[in-house]
Amino acid sequence: MADDDKMQVSRREVFIKLGVGSAAVACAGAAVFGYSYLSPNVLYEPSPIANAGKPENYPRGSVTQDLQAGIYVVHGPEGFYALSAICTHLGCLTVWNADRGIIACPCHGSKFSELGAKLEGPAPRGLPWLKVWLSDEGELLVDRATVIPQRQYLRT
């Protein structure tokens, strides 16, 4: 090669580059290893599907809160539907106020209608409608992880 002199690399430089290079490879490997270890492969969290029991337990025109599941099961004039009871503001558990016929959040005062529509802030949106269906045993099941468009009623 013509520019042999310029291509001269000292032994020390080679070893430094080898050292830094293998340290970089080890760091990258440790990062991949660490990430896969830190992300759990199995979660022991409650199922998103909640069993709300027999439809007969819900009289027409009733709003029933399931505190454990964090949902409302409503038997409206047009059929059944389920609302998330989790406030869309910062995740507090809302409460059904039967006297005033509204759903209210105790944390920051958001208010919702029994259709889930936002009446008053600071919540940015209304309460989402959740997927409801009847199981083979004739019980109402609510999937808390699946939001459906509003006004999709379940008629039994």
Binding site: F33, S36, Y37, S39, P40, N41, V42
Partner: peptide, 13 residues
């Protein structure tokens, strides 16, 4: 047991 059989690289650690 989860560390042994479920968690990624758990058995190694």
């Amino acid at each position: 047991k989860d560390l042994q059989f479920v968690v990624s690289a758990g058995v190694f650690l």
